[in-house]
Design a protein around this nucleic acid. Structure first.
Lengths: 244, 244
DNA sequence: GGGATTCCGTACGTTAGCGTACATACAGCG
DNA sequence: CGCTGTATGTACGCTAACGTACGGAATCCC
């Protein structure tokens, strides 16, 4: 049996200096996130923030007529519930567990408190919010200009980046819901990717076989988001602010 | 001749307590914003933040193939350059003056300094950023699901909210660029709105004649953004947190 | 006033994606 | 094994929007 994830599995928590981390640790509470669970409803109260470790959470907008669209996806690189420290307390978006797993949650009051001390935690949370903004903006552009197939590639890559394996559990109907397109559109696009040997899927299990090929087939949107995220967090241990 | 705009014409600056405002005032520098001017380039340096008073600035993403899409619009309710205090220093978006006018700019170093004191300024800037996020997310959904005509209505209303008059100077080609659609598509949609008596336009001058009608023709996206913005800033003097 | 430029209108074939309907296929379970 | 439900495949007409092309009209400028 694999060892349970620790808070450090979340990149934001893992990047905190020891002192800040220690102060937060007793308040962090591990929670299981089950597939399809709604963490927040649109405009509803947000009592906790969630730091995913092994799960993925989608931020969705749902229209009056029931149609929906994903605007961003959050995994162990980020945090769900930025409205808590941004000051709004809520947002018009839903947050839904897209891939089951584990997260650590933190009471909103404690978070707000810690945030207002300033320092590394505040800085990290704000930088993450900025990368989230980039993802949302790029999603908007992608929705405007790119084909379903390109968007599917982007979506697969974004999800893959947030998972430990190259396999994800997700039916085509659910993907269609995320992308805001028809299920048949996903079937068609996925069929092409499978024919091209990039992926393999069957009844809700998608295995990515050739990731580089997938990246080449995706639109530039994925790369932009990835690059910006890498830049903001300088994962390669380069000093902050160093632009290659 | 009308009196020149003061910093208070910007809602964020105007909402500051006297002490904070006074501290910022000597650093604020009035600048004329000319139509089409690029305030920031994609990924370029952002030396100043801009508090618009009478101008409007569009945030655009431009793709490799030259196609583009507006992801948000900023007027006297906000500030251009959130990346400066969010910590990224830059963003992949361009910022272009969509409607000429005036703004006050503030050196990024001073801003960052003031931001890190915490307090009302920080809180205001973060709440504004949150409303910007809402706008961007809603744009993403709108791009996915709504017709050009609906989007045009939304766009007109958003622009109108940020202008003192009911007239805006903007050719159909430029609007098409913002929306990321064909110029002909805008011509057609605008023609319908004109036939319906909602607007009047000629060679780059658009006059809105019947705003309520326009709101009814727009998709829900406009209302969501407006409501969220009103909520976050409680312009009706209601106590913060009061949800009608 | 004449010419150039910019802006707007229109038209036509093409295409991506939609809505709908239905067929197949696999999985789990009794 | 056969039943049932869920997941996936396919097909067909329809529409919004695209790319392209060109004509007309207002404005600017000499």
């Amino acid at each position: 049996m694999p060892s349970p994830p620790t808070p450090k599995h979340n990149h934001l928590l893992g990047a905190l200096p020891a002192a800040d981390y220690a102060r937060l640790l007793p308040e962090l509470e591990p929670v299981q996130m089950v597939l399809g669970q709604a963490i927040y409803e649109s405009g509803g109260p947000q009592e906790y923030v969630y730091f995913p470790t092994t799960c993925i959470v989608s931020l969705l907008y749902v229209m009056q007529d029931g149609s929906s669209a994903e605007i961003a996806v959050v995994g162990n690189e980020g945090v769900v519930g930025v409205a808590l420290f941004m000051g709004g307390g809520t947002t018009p978006s839903r947050a839904v567990v897209q891939s089951a797993g584990q997260a650590f949650r933190l009471d909103g009051v404690h978070l707000k408190d810690a945030f207002e001390r300033g320092g590394p935690l505040q800085s990290l949370l704000l930088r993450y919010t900025q990368s989230l903004i980039t993802q949302m903006a790029q999603t908007a552009v992608c929705n405007r200009h790119h084909t379903v197939e390109q968007q599917l590639c982007r979506w697969l890559l974004l999800s893959l980046d947030r998972l430990p394996t190259n396999e994800l559990t997700m039916t085509q109907a659910l993907i269609a819901n995320m992308l805001g397109v028809r299920r048949e559109g996903v079937t068609e696009a996925a069929g092409k990717l499978q024919s091209a040997g990039m992926i393999n899927y069957s009844r809700g299990k998608i295995t990515v076989l050739d990731r580089p090929k997938l990246e080449r087939r995706a639109c530039e949107c994925y790369a932009v988001v990835k690059r910006e995220s890498d830049r903001l967090f300088a994962r390669n241990e380069a000093p902050v602010g160093a632009l290659a």
